[in-house]
Structure formats: structure tokens, C-alpha cells
């Protein structure tokens, strides 16, 4: 919406929504921990994840579940069976199931919140003399720093667990395929090392790019109306924007959270039991 207001002023730019202005300056030495829109969305997403998890999975539980508890159990068991048990060895399940489950819920909530118009924006509008923030849609997961941070957690967990369960030598030896000819090792080893880092990139960029693309498309579709000031575009822009919006909310949001959590589980599981 703030984009639309901006568009109305003929300076429409879809990237405008993704600019992070410093709201509360906070510097810890060289580290800039200032609070901005992305941090606010991260906090909001974290809070909502906690509230959702506790609401669905803690209070009023009984052996004969009501609809709320059934939903909670369905989500819990889906994550357990479809993500954790299919990727993590049973000996490490008790440690890493909560991680992948939390990852799934956290990313899912961040993605969903990203499609809800909220008054968390850099832009303001005047309503009867009072300056209020304009409604806007913004996804924290459409920021590479956020997805990279989560991917780094998985990356770190993967190698820590790989070394913990297998020992340093056996773990790093597991990167090299069995029976590989020695002359080819000079080629294989760098490739394997690179592939480990490529996982990090693929994990973070997949989520970031998907969310960014979805938001960009929706914003561009709606912005076209104001850019061209052509009302005949309204049905097409709104219709196409709505289709993209529903596609993103109905499918992409959940799939991306699922893929991120599943790949995290697979990487960690493969490190714990490299032979599988």
C-alpha cells in the first residue's frame, strides 16, 4: 500500500518496500544491531510462532482433541513424519526434530506475515492531522541476510553433528566417494568442498528469491495502475496480482518452509550417517 501511495506520486519503485531504514540505532562495536523493518518483522514472526505453537500445542490438551488440538497435532505429526523422520536418523531425532520443526514453523509464519498488510512501514500518511504508518507487505524471508543466517545455522549444525558422530577424520573422509581413483582426488576434493558451500547458497537463495519474486510481482502488478493512470488496467492488474497473491499464500509459503526444513534435516542426517 505504501508503494501505491508512492506510485501515486509518480516515483513508484517496487524495491522501495525492501529498503531498510534505521529505526532504533544500536551499535555493538563494529556490529550494527539497529532495529529496522526487517528486525521488526523477525521479532513479530518469532512472537507469532511462539504464540501459535503454544496455542496449538500446549494448552487444553486432552485425549479427545478438539479442532484446535487436532490442528496442532496434525502440524506436529506432519513435520515429524514428513520432515524429521524421513531425513534424520532415529538416534539423533530427539535432538534435531525440535530444530527442523521450529525452523518450519518460524519460516512459515515469517512467510505468511509477509503477505499480510501491516502498518510496519517506512512511509507515513496524514489522517486528520495524525501521521500514521501506511499499510505495506514485507517478508523478512525476502531478505538474503535472514535466510542466510538460518542456512548458516543448518550449515554449522551439519558439520558439528557430522564430526560429533563420526570423528573428524571419518567425517571428512566421507565426503570423498568410496573407490574414487587417487589421481582424481585433486579434482574431487575441491568439488566436494565447494558443494558443501553451495548447499549454503542454495538453501538461503532459494527461499529468499522465491519470496522476493512473489512480492515483487504483486507490487509491480498493483503499481502498474498508478504508474499508467489507466483504469482499464485495473481488472488485469488486480486479477493477476490476486492470482499471484493466492498462489504465494496458498502454495509457495508452505512449500518453501517445508523445503528449507526438509533440506536442513537431510543435510544434518546425511552428516550424522554419511553412509546413507
Amino acid at each position: 500500500m505504501s508503494v501505491l501511495f508512492a506510485a501515486a506520486e509518480s516515483d513508484f519503485d517496487p524495491q522501495h518496500e525492501f529498503i531498510l531504514e534505521e529505526w532504533i540505532p544500536l551499535h555493538l562495536g563494529p556490529l550494527d544491531l539497529s532495529v529496522n523493518k526487517a528486525v521488526a518483522y523477525i521479532w513479530l514472526g518469532g512472537l507469532l510462532t511462539i504464540l501459535l505453537g503454544i496455542w496449538l500445542m500446549r494448552f487444553g490438551l486432552s485425549l479427545r482433541p478438539d479442532r484446535r488440538q487436532t490442528t496442532g497435532e496434525a502440524i506436529y505429526e506432519a513435520v515429524q513424519e514428513q520432515i524429521a523422520e524421513s531425513s534424520i536418523p532415529s538416534k539423533a531425532l530427539h535432538i534435531w526434530f525440535p530444530y527442523v520443526a521450529s525452523l518450519f514453523l518460524f519460516i512459515w509464519v515469517l512467510n505468511i506475515v509477509g503477505f499480510v498488510p501491516l502498518p510496519i512501514s517506512n512511509d507515513k500518511f496524514d489522517a486528520f492531522g495524525v501521521e500514521l504508518p501506511t499499510l505495506g507487505i514485507y517478508a523478512a524471508t525476502a531478505n538474503l541476510s535472514v535466510t542466510l543466517a538460518l542456512a548458516l545455522l543448518t550449515f554449522g549444525a551439519t558439520h558439528v553433528e557430522g564430526i560429533r558422530y563420526n570423528g573428524v577424520v571419518r567425517y571428512f573422509k566421507s565426503w570423498i566417494p568410496e573407490g574414487a581413483p587417487k589421481p582424481l582426488l585433486a579434482l574431487i576434493v575441491p568439488l566436494e568442498v565447494i558443494s558443501q558451500f553451495m548447499r549454503l547458497i542454495s538453501l538461503s537463495v532459494r527461499l529468499f528469491a522465491n519470496m522476493l519474486a512473489g512480492h515483487m510481482l504483486i507490487l509491480v502488478m498493483l503499481g502498474l495502475i498508478f504508474i499508467f493512470s489507466a483504469w482499464w488496467l485495473v481488472p488485469f492488474s488486480v486479477g493477476f496480482g490476486l492470482v499471484i497473491y493466492l498462489f504465494e499464500v496458498g502454495i509457495v509459503v508452505t512449500i518453501q518452509a517445508f523445503v528449507f526444513a526438509l533440506l536442513s534435516g537431510i543435510y544434518i542426517g546425511a552428516a550424522i550417517e554419511p553412509e546413507h
Binding site: 526487517a38 528486525v39 523477525i42 496449538l56 521450529s102 543466517a149
Partner: peptide
Amino acid sequence: IDVVPGLMVWTVVTFLVVLWVLRRFAFRRI
């Protein structure tokens, strides 16, 4: 595509808090 270390720290911290709370207060119960 800028990588902002501060935002990464907030992401990790928030996620770890979420993980701790859910693990302790939600997952165990259900």
C-alpha cells in the same frame, strides 16, 4: 542482496528463542 550481519544476528537470536520456547513449552507437551 546485501548481507547485513546485525540482521543475521537478530535472526539467529530470535530463532534460537523460538526453538527454546517451542521445545520446552509446546513440543514436549503435545
